[in-house]
Design a protein around this nucleic acid. Structure first.
Length: 475
DNA sequence: TGAAATGTTGGGGCG
DNA sequence: ACGCCCCAACATTTC
C-alpha cells in the first residue's frame, strides 16, 4: 500500500527546488493541486494581468506533471478535506506565503488538519531568507535596507535542489482550466503577450539563462535605461515561483559576471527580500502608511487625473510612455515605475494606494510585498523610503534616462517624428515643429495636465501637514 | 535610486 | 597690472 501526500501549489509553480514537492515525493505518491481561492477572508482577488499569467503558468505546470495537476475552486479548507477523502492522502505539504490573509488562512488550515491526524508541513520556496530570520544585534527587525542586506548577505543563500527523481503523480477529479476564464476575452488585451512572456518553469529557466549569458554584463550601468533590454525580467517568474531565488543566486555565481554587475543584481533580489521582511513586520503594509504621520497628508481625489494617468495621457511623454508600456505588456521598466509613481503621488497628489491598486491589476509581476513596499518607498511613507521632497522632474528624468527619446517613441508613436530636442517637451515645441511632426497638442497628444513647478510647490506644501503630524508609537 | 536654490570658485573680458 | 564684473562650472544646502 502506497502513501499519498497532497502538495498544495500556490506561488511555487515549479518542480525544481520545491521543498514541499520534494518532501511529498520522498514519502511516496503525490497528488498535486492548485486551488483558486476566491472565498477566504481577506485574500485579495488577483489582478487581470496576474490571472493571465496564472492561466499559462498552470497550463505549463500541468504539462510538466503529465497532465495530472488537479484544479479546484473554492474554500481551500473544504477542498483539501474533500481531496483527502477522495485520494486517501494522509499528509498535506505546501510552501509558505507571507501576506497577512494567507498566513491566517494557512495557520487555521494547518491546525484543523493536524486535529484530524493529517501530517502537515510547510516550507520556504520563495525567499533566500525567512523574513523573521534577519535580525539586528539587538534582536530587532531591520528598518533600513543597507544594514539589512549586509546582515543577510553575510549568511549566504542555501543551494537550490533539483527536481525530485521518480516523481509518482496520482490523479484526481479536476476542473477545466479554461472554465476558470482567467484570460481576458472581450476585449483580449493580452492577445500578443505570449510574444513578451513565456510563463512557466521552462520559460523562467530560459529567461535566466538568456540574462546570465547576455545582459548581466554591464547590468549595473545599463539597467537604468528603459529603452535598452538590459534587465532580467525575471520578476513575474519569481512572483509565481516558477524559479527560486536560490537557483538564481547559484546560477549567478557560476556565470562569471563582473563583480559590480553581479552585486547590483543581487541587490535587487535584496530589495525583494527586504519587502517581504517589511510585510512580515507590518502586515498592513499594503493598506496603511508605515510612517503613520503620512495619514495626515491631504490627498486629492480627481477621477479625471487618475484616468489620464492610467491611460498614459498626462502630457509628459516619459511618464506616458511608462504607463502605456504597462498597459501594452503587463510590465514597466523599474526606473520608469519610480517616475510614474512619483508623478501620481506628488504631481497629482493622489493617494499611493490608488497607484498600488492599478499596478496590482495591470502588472504581470504584481506582488503584495514588492508592490506595497515600493509604492511606500516612493511616497516617503515607507521604511528606509525616499524622502518625500525627492520629487522627480518628469522632463529631466526623460532627458537623463531616455536621452535620444527611443523609449518615448516606442510607446507613444504619435510623437515619433518629433526631433530629439522636443521629444520630452512637446508642449515647448514651436508650432511649426509640431506641424512638421504631425502633432496637434490637445488632439493627437495631450497638453500637460499639471504645471511642473506649481505641482512641485503644492506637493511640498502638503508635506508640511506630515511634518507637523504626531506619529504613532514604535516607528 | 532628486531637483532646485544657493553658495563658491576661477577664468576671461574689459576699462 | 589690477580690480571689477559676468558667468559657467562645480559644491553645498534645502526642500
Amino acid at each position: 500500500m502506497t502513501t499519498t501526500s497532497l502538495v498544495w501549489f500556490r506561488q511555487d509553480l515549479r518542480l525544481a527546488d520545491n521543498p514541499a514537492l520534494a518532501a511529498a515525493c520522498a514519502r511516496g505518491a503525490v497528488v498535486a493541486i492548485y486551488i483558486l481561492d476566491e472565498a477566504s477572508e481577506g485574500v485579495r482577488p488577483l489582478g487581470g494581468a496576474s490571472r493571465w499569467w496564472l492561466h499559462h503558468s498552470l497550463a505549463a505546470l500541468d504539462r510538466a506533471l503529465g497532465g495530472k495537476l488537479v484544479l479546484r475552486r473554492g474554500d481551500p479548507a473544504r477542498v483539501l478535506d474533500e481531496l483527502i477523502a477522495e485520494t486517501g492522502a494522509d499528509a498535506v505539504f505546501w510552501n509558505r506565503l507571507y501576506d497577512a490573509a494567507s498566513v491566517a488562512r494557512d495557520a487555521s488550515i494547518k491546525a484543523a488538519l493536524r486535529g484530524k491526524g493529517v501530517e502537515v508541513r510547510s516550507f520556504n520556496a520563495s525567499l533566500l531568507f525567512e523574513p523573521w530570520e534577519i535580525k539586528t544585534g539587538a534582536d530587532a527587525p531591520y528598518k533600513v535596507f543597507t544594514p539589512f542586506w549586509r546582515a543577510a548577505y553575510q549568511r549566504g543563500a542555501a543551494p537550490p535542489a533539483s527536481a525530485p527523481k521518480g516523481l509518482k503523480v496520482g490523479a484526481a477529479r479536476t476542473e477545466g482550466l479554461n472554465d476558470w476564464a482567467l484570460t481576458p476575452s472581450t476585449p483580449d488585451w493580452a492577445a500578443d503577450w505570449r510574444r513578451y512572456w513565456t510563463p512557466g518553469e521552462a520559460g523562467a529557466r530560459a529567461r535566466l539563462d538568456a540574462f546570465l549569458s547576455g545582459a548581466i554584463k554591464g547590468y549595473a550601468e545599463a539597467r537604468d535605461y528603459p529603452a535598452r533590454d538590459a534587465t532580467s525580467r525575471l520578476s513575474p517568474h519569481l512572483h509565481w515561483g516558477e524559479i527560486s531565488p536560490r537557483r538564481i543566486w547559484a546560477a549567478l555565481h557560476h556565470a562569471n559576471a563582473p563583480a559590480r554587475d553581479a552585486e547590483a543584481f543581487q541587490r535587487e533580489l535584496g530589495w525583494r527580500e527586504f519587502s517581504y521582511h517589511l510585510l512580515h513586520q507590518f502586515p498592513d503594509l499594503p493598506t496603511r502608511n508605515w510612517k503613520s504621520a503620512f495619514d495626515a497628508y491631504p490627498w486629492r481625489t480627481s477621477a479625471a487625473d487618475v484616468r489620464a494617468w492610467r491611460r498614459g495621457r498626462t502630457g509628459y511623454p516619459y511618464i506616458d510612455a511608462g504607463l502605456r508600456e504597462l498597459w501594452a505588456t503587463g510590465y514597466m521598466h523599474n526606473r520608469v515605475r519610480m517616475a510614474v509613481a512619483s508623478f501620481l503621488i506628488k504631481h497629482l497628489r493622489i493617494d499611493w494606494r490608488v497607484g498600488e491598486a492599478w499596478f496590482w491589476d495591470t502588472l504581470v509581476d504584481a506582488d503584495a510585498a514588492n508592490n506595497a513596499a515600493s509604492w511606500q518607498w516612493v511616497a516617503g511613507s515607507g521604511a528606509d523610503a525616499a524622502p518625500y521632497f525627492r520629487i522627480f522632474n518628469p522632463v529631466e528624468q526623460g532627458r537623463k534616462f531616455d536621452a535620444d527619446g527611443a523609449y518615448v517613441r516606442r510607446w507613444i508613436p504619435e510623437l515619433k517624428l518629433l526631433p530629439v530636442r522636443f521629444v520630452h517637451v512637446p508642449f515647448e515645441a514651436p508650432s511649426a515643429v509640431l506641424a512638421q511632426a504631425g502633432v496637434r497638442l490637445g488632439e493627437t497628444y495631450p497638453r500637460p495636465i499639471v504645471d511642473h513647478a506649481e505641482a512641485r510647490a503644492a506637493a511640498l506644501a502638503g508635506y508640511e501637514r506630515v511634518k507637523s503630524a504626531v506619529p504613532r508609537e514604535a516607528e
